[in-house]
Amino acid sequence: MVTINDVAKLAGVSRSTASRAFTPNSSIKQITKEKVFTAAKQLNYSPNFSARSLVTQKKYVIGVFMSRIHADMSTYFSNIISSANAGLPSNYLLSVAGIDQLEDFDQSVRNRFDGVIVVSQSKNDDTFIDKLKEARIPTVVVLRRVDLPEIDNIYANDRVAMHNLVQYIYQQGHRRLGIINGSAEFITSEVRYIGIKEQAKKLKMNIVPSATKQGQFSLTTGEVMMNEILNQPRSDWPTCVICASDDIALGALKACHQHDLSVPRDISLTGFDNIPYSMVSTPSLTTIENPLSLMIENGMKFLLQRISNSATERQTLVIEPSLIIRSSVSLQ
């Protein structure tokens, strides 16, 4: 059986140096690390992380917990997983779960993770976050703002993003807005709605009450709610409907096609997220670039710093989303 001693001998380094080469963020020169990895590959050596965890008290597992995992989040889900995995050290595993499905924190979470990224959309997650804090598990919360002194936090300024979107719609000549919002329990829905209302009020734009809808962040919500708007007399329609996600907007676009309407000639639509489908729809969606990947990537960096004890003070990062102008908003 090949041991770390064999790897060290072949690489021409000490046993401790060879061992540290497999430890994330260790103070070892890259050229030395490459020599150790080359020797390990030649000898078909794999470090025994189970044995090492008994000594170091590390589990070599990072947890990613979302408010909930559901069928309508395929693009959203893949962005989170791919971004988290990109920053994951090679000797770590990634474990993904929905907070809403956890039944026993002690059995499922406590003593099983070196650190956790919480992708939080709801205040309902606060109980889970408090338990992570109590269990002294290094934690980073991304997506929504939290004001907890020992928890690192990364979120996007969705409120300002909506200010910029409404400003653009106004500049295109629109004065009557509709809104199809996402889940009422999610903070993102509330923040985006507040941003729309604030800027519309500032610009003296009219938010049409009968065209203000709330459902889920899903294609179905977009289709159903847009049909409700379009089934009203045309004189009651808004000229532009702001959707709280691209999935909602794509569902709304389908409803417009069912009514033989041309977007944006007959009615304009916008989304939020800038998912790949928003670029290839007909028309392509004017939307907001949700910096989800950037939030997750920085969340992993913050977390690894916490795990290695190199971060001493609470870290907070606020990211500004970008307006993506495409073809779904007409010039009035």
Score class of each variant (00 low, 15 high):
220 T>F: 14
282 T>F: 08
19 S>N: 15
147 D>C: 15
37 F>A: 10
309 N>I: 09
276 P>Y: 04
193 Y>V: 02
123 K>I: 05
268 S>D: 02
296 I>Y: 07
48 N>R: 05
189 S>P: 01
142 V>E: 05
298 N>Y: 07
42 Q>T: 10
138 P>T: 04
20 R>G: 07
227 N>L: 15
70 H>G: 15
142 V>M: 05
329 V>S: 01
318 V>N: 14
292 L>D: 02
180 I>Q: 03
188 T>G: 04
233 P>F: 10
117 I>D: 01
278 S>R: 01
163 H>R: 11
14 S>D: 10
66 M>D: 01
71 A>F: 11
93 L>K: 03
22 F>G: 00
120 S>W: 00
8 A>C: 09
44 N>A: 14
222 G>Y: 07
65 F>K: 10
142 V>S: 07
151 I>S: 07
263 V>Y: 05
258 Q>L: 14
279 M>D: 05
52 R>V: 12
176 R>V: 06
147 D>L: 15
52 R>M: 14
280 V>P: 00
142 V>T: 13
204 K>H: 12
78 S>L: 08
146 V>G: 01
67 S>F: 02
58 K>C: 11
81 I>F: 03
288 I>P: 00
42 Q>I: 12
317 L>S: 03
236 D>H: 15
261 L>V: 14
230 L>K: 09
332 Q>A: 02
244 A>R: 01
256 C>K: 15
301 K>F: 14
206 N>S: 09
317 L>G: 04
79 N>S: 13
28 I>N: 05
247 D>A: 13
291 P>R: 02
248 I>P: 10
230 L>W: 12
321 P>E: 15
